[in-house]
Write a protein that binds this DNA or RNA. Structure first.
Lengths: 197, 197
DNA sequence: CGTCTATTTGAATGTACTCAAAAGCGGTGG
DNA sequence: CCACCGCTTTTGAGTACATTCAAATAGACG
């Protein structure tokens, strides 16, 4: 199979749990490699999300489209990140999110059924995802608090310093859709910030 | 000990996992009942959060205070809800959140050390909290998406229909601090909504 | 009944959006 | 190598959403 992706995902997991070779083999047997072209969908709105994806190359985004056709981005995922539609994964109902690739990308897919089997057969994985969820919660809570308490300019600065790799490779329209502002306004924010320096 | 609280927490847990009497006894032995007067702190900003609290009576809130002295509410927790400072629980560092009681309240406290011990000794509890985290993530993601994509009036309506029990017992200033708007503006929103009906 | 707090109202201001148009920036083909 | 195309970013004027500050009103409670 594809060695670089496996190396990265095993390293990602080894940050929180330690696996023996049998556990590694079992885990790896559950993963489906998947290639995505630019703009290709991993999940479309209204579909049930069956997979959690680990990105080992490229960049994906999860987002929803409102009644006026505007996109609002929940998450970017570059190398070494996980992405999926938690709502749909948990409820097994059709979700509101779309997931697609901003660049040519490669992911490893873990089916929800396989994930749950994994939790039963190797409880360490339940620990791994529990820890991943805890960290993810912390970041979401931080972002939420920033959103309800700070003006857009400040949110942009925090985002830029927190995720310089993402700023560097993602178009401004996408950043604006993540921050919850229009691209035009983000452009003005950047001008103002430059002027102040 | 206090039977009503225990009944409620065991029922809460039984929604996702089943326990035998030995496991119940062990779990219960780790819980510390705690009473809070109105306005009393469970956690103060800058302290390490050691406990996850299960509310079985009353109403708590977690919030941060910005540099201008304004409060921003992350979560309300009434009967049958869990509350804590995930950031501080996970990192074991001093956190940014304050947790206090909006009403005279009763909680059951689970120390982070005991929680981690529990995960080792009764792995079912790791499952329980993994599921709790998944559901909590879904709600946070929903709220975040609403915040970046909807005007305040709509966010208020959604909040009111999603949490009627909270609207009924929490002052408007607190709702405003949760929605990310000023109390004055919330007052105007309510007036407008009434006029439209 | 008075005191304390929460809510409402209003005018002025600031933050962010809309719409339309111009400018910049790769790529691709001639 | 340049000209053109499609896409992203910038600019600007007008508007809408939300805040600030100050003051009036309304509720809750001893």
């Amino acid at each position: 199979m594809n060695t670089p992706g496996l190396e990265l995902i095993l390293q990602n997991i080894s940050r929180f749990i330690e696996l023996n070779s049998g556990e590694i083999d079992f885990f790896v047997s559950l993963l489906k490699p998947h290639h995505l072209r630019r703009r290709q969908f991993l999940l479309q709105e209204g579909m049930v999300c069956n997979y959690t994806a680990f990105v080992y190359n490229g960049c994906l985004r999860s987002y929803s489209v409102d009644s006026n056709g505007f996109e609002h981005i929940l998450q970017f995922a570059i190398e070494d990140w996980w992405i999926g539609d938690m709502y749909s994964l948990v409820t097994r109902q059709p979700g509101f999110l779309t997931i697609d690739a901003l660049e040519e990308s490669d992911v490893l897919l873990l089916h929800r059924d396989d994930q749950l089997r994994l939790f039963n057969e190797v409880p360490k994985f339940e620990r791994f995802f529990r820890i991943l969820l805890e960290k993810s919660m912390v970041m979401h809570q931080l972002r939420l608090m920033e959103n309800i308490s700070m003006p857009a300019a400040q949110r942009y600065q925090i985002f830029a310093s927190r995720y310089p790799q993402i700023i560097a490779r993602v178009p401004q329209t996408q950043i604006a859709a993540y921050l919850g502002i229009t691209p035009e306004f983000l452009s003005k924010i950047k001008k103002d910030l430059l002027r102040k320096k």
